[in-house]
Design a protein around this nucleic acid. Structure first.
Lengths: 220, 220
DNA sequence: TCGTATTTCGAATAATATTCGAAAAATGTG
DNA sequence: CACATTTTTCGAATATTATTCGAAATACGA
C-alpha cells in the first residue's frame, strides 16, 4: 500500500503530499491506474455530479477495487480537486501560443476569454464539473484549487490594468469589478448552456459577451 | 408520524407535497418545530456548507431528535431547498414597494439589482448558502428552485427588453446575454465578498457593477 | 372522558466513505 | 537466477450519515 500516513516519516515526501502534487508512484503500471481512476471520475462527475457519484461507481467504471482509489487519492475531495488540475494545464497550453503575437492587452483579453469558451465547448464534461461544482467550492474555501484559479483571475486583472494604462479602458474602471464581470458572466453563460443541452453556439455567445463588456469598459 | 408515503393516499395532499409546498401541519406546535429546524439548518449551512453539515448536527442545534427532521422534510435535499424559499419571498417583499414609483425600466433594473445586494449584505448566511451552494445546483438540475430563479431572471430579461424598446439600450443587445452578465457578475462579486470576509462595501461595489454594465448596454 | 387524528422519537437499516493489514507483484542485488 | 526488499494491490473490516419504521405520546373533537 502507498498509505499516506507512512509518508510523514519521509520528510521529502511529506511536502509533496501536502502541496497537493501527485504521490511518487514509482511504477508505470500504477501511474496508469491512477489515470484510469481519474478519467472514470471525470466522466461520472460530469454526468451525475459529484454528490451523485459514489466511489463505488468510480471504482467500477475504472475497473479497480474500491479501496484502490485510496492508494492514489487521499479521499474523495482530493479526487475531485484533481479533475480540474489537468484541464487547467491543457487550457493554458492552448492559450499560450495564441497570446505572444499581439501586444495589445485588450486583444489578449479577448483571446483568453474566447479560448476558454472554446475549451468548454470541447470538454463540456469538465465544464460541468468545474463551473457548477468546483468553482463555487473554490470560491468558498478550497485553498488548493483556489491558487490555480487566482492565478487565472490575476491574468485578467493585469491585462485590464494594462488596458487602462494604455488609455483604452476608462481611468475609473475598477479592474477587480471588471474581472468579476468577465468571470461571473462566463460562469453563468456556461452553466445555462450546459443546462439547456448546449442548444446554441457557446463561443458565439462568448463573443457577444465580450463585446458588451468591452463597450462598458472603454473610454468614452 | 406525518410520513410522506401515506400522503399518496390522499389525492389533495399528494399534489401539495409534489409541488414542494409545506406539509399540512395542523398544530401550531409542529409548525414552530419546523421553523426551528429550518433556522438551525440555515445557520449551520451558512457556517460550514451543506456537505459539511450533518443532519445530526442540525437536529442537535434545533434541539429535536434526528428522526424528527424527516417528519417535516422529505430528505436533506428538501431541507436545503427550503432555505432559499423564505428568503426569496422576503427579497420580493423588500423590492416590490420600491419598484412601482418609476416607470423607467433602467431605473427599475437598477433597483432590483441593488436591493438584492443589500439583502445579501443583511443576510450573508443566506448569501453563502444560496450563491455558493444552491445556485450552481439549481443551474445544474433542481427543477423546483429553478422555477423561482427563472422567474427572477425573467424579470431582468423583460426590463432589459423594455429598455431596448425605449431606445435606452442598443437595438442589438441580446437580453439574455445581458441578463447573464448581471446574474453572473452578482454571483461572482458576492462569492468573493463572502470569501474574503466581507472587507468591502458590497452595495457600493454593486453600484459600480451596474454602472459598468449599463455603459456596455446603452445606445451610443 | 373517550376515541381518533396527529405528532414525536428511539431503534433499526442502508449506503457510502474510509482504514487496515496481509498477500501479490515488481525490483534490485549477490 | 534466487532471494530480500520495496512497492503495489485488494478483501474485509469500521465509521459516519442518511433514511425508515412503528410503537408510544400528545392534542383534539364529540
Amino acid at each position: 500500500m502507498i498509505h499516506f500516513r507512512y509518508l510523514t516519516v519521509f520528510a521529502g515526501w511529506e511536502k509533496e503530499v501536502a502541496s497537493g502534487t501527485t504521490l511518487k508512484l514509482k511504477q508505470q503500471r500504477s501511474r496508469d491506474r491512477r489515470e484510469q481512476i481519474l478519467s472514470a471520475a471525470t466522466k461520472l462527475f460530469g454526468q451525475r455530479g459529484i454528490d451523485g457519484t459514489s466511489l463505488t461507481e468510480v471504482a467500477a467504471v475504472a475497473k479497480v477495487p474500491l479501496s484502490s482509489i485510496y492508494d492514489y487519492f487521499e479521499d474523495k475531495r482530493a479526487l475531485v480537486l484533481d479533475v480540474p488540475e489537468g484541464n487547467f494545464e491543457a487550457l493554458y497550453q492552448k492559450t499560450e501560443p495564441l497570446l505572444v503575437k499581439s501586444g495589445d492587452p485588450v486583444e489578449q483579453l479577448r483571446i483568453i476569454f474566447l479560448t476558454n469558451f472554446q475549451y468548454i465547448k470541447d470538454n463540456p464534461s469538465w465544464g460541468r464539473v468545474f463551473f457548477l461544482e468546483i468553482w463555487p467550492s473554490v470560491l468558498a474555501a478550497e485553498p488548493r484549487v483556489k491558487k490555480a484559479v487566482d492565478k487565472y483571475a490575476l491574468r485578467y486583472v493585469q491585462l485590464i490594468k494594462q488596458a487602462i494604462r494604455a488609455g483604452t479602458y476608462r481611468r475609473n474602471l475598477d479592474p477587480y469589478t471588471a474581472m468579476s464581470l468577465m468571470m461571473g458572466g462566463m460562469c453563468h453563460l456556461t452553466a445555462v448552456w450546459l443546462l439547456y443541452g448546449r442548444k446554441y453556439d457557446l463561443v458565439k455567445k462568448g463573443k457577444t459577451l465580450f463585446t458588451t463588456l468591452h463597450n462598458g469598459f472603454v473610454q468614452r
